[in-house]
């Protein structure tokens, strides 16, 4: 099933602001087994010059995937979400996410192509503060496996 190529270049309105919670950062860091105090201990973070706990680098996926999901569920795009796997992920950072940041995420569909019977969708999620300061951009390739199988 081919995806609707009219979606290439399409941008969606910014998501509602996401307030990065200190305990969420701590929970995410603990789930990854992070031992660096900068993500666990507010005093340690402040001694290192941050205003609050520093989120691990992949924390941005919480925002970008939630925002992208709303987009890829658009029935006009034609993506069968039950067959989707995450193929590829890249982040470009201006700075780390810090607890207390209020962030908005703007998703753009960067590319659509078909490779060996699999549909591949590249989304770009620009994550910035509500004041407009860029923090991180997340590029995700989602692969909808063809119905004849393929690797997981």
């Amino acid at each position: 099933m081919a995806l609707n190529a009219d979606f290439i270049g399409r941008s969606y309105p910014a998501s509602a602001p996401y307030l990065v919670g200190r305990e969420k950062v701590r929970e995410f860091a603990r789930a990854l087994g992070v031992t660096d105090a900068v993500s666990l201990d507010v005093d340690a973070a402040r001694e290192r010059g941050y205003s609050d706990l520093v989120a691990p680098p992949t924390y941005a996926i919480r925002l970008s995937m939630a925002a992208a999901e709303a987009v890829v569920m658009d029935p006009d795009l034609g993506l069968d979400y039950t067959r989707v796997v995450h193929g590829d992920q890249r982040f470009e950072y201006s700075r780390p996410i810090v607890a207390g940041d209020e962030l908005v995420c703007t998703v753009t569909i960067d590319g659509i192509r078909s490779v060996a019977g699999n549909d591949m969708l590249t989304t770009r999620a620009d994550i910035a503060t509500t004041d407009g300061e860029h923090v991180v951009t997340s590029y995700s390739v989602l692969v909808a496996r063809g119905t004849d199988g393929g690797s997981a």
């Binding site: 900068v38 520093v54 691990p56 680098p57 992949t58 193929g87 590829d88 992920q89 890249r90 982040f91 470009e92 950072y93 700075r95 780390p96 590029y139």
Partner: peptide, 10 residues
């Protein structure tokens, strides 16, 4: 981690 500019994988 403020030194980290980019990170990606497949």
């Amino acid at each position: 981690s403020s030194r980290l500019l980019e990170y990606g994988c497949r």
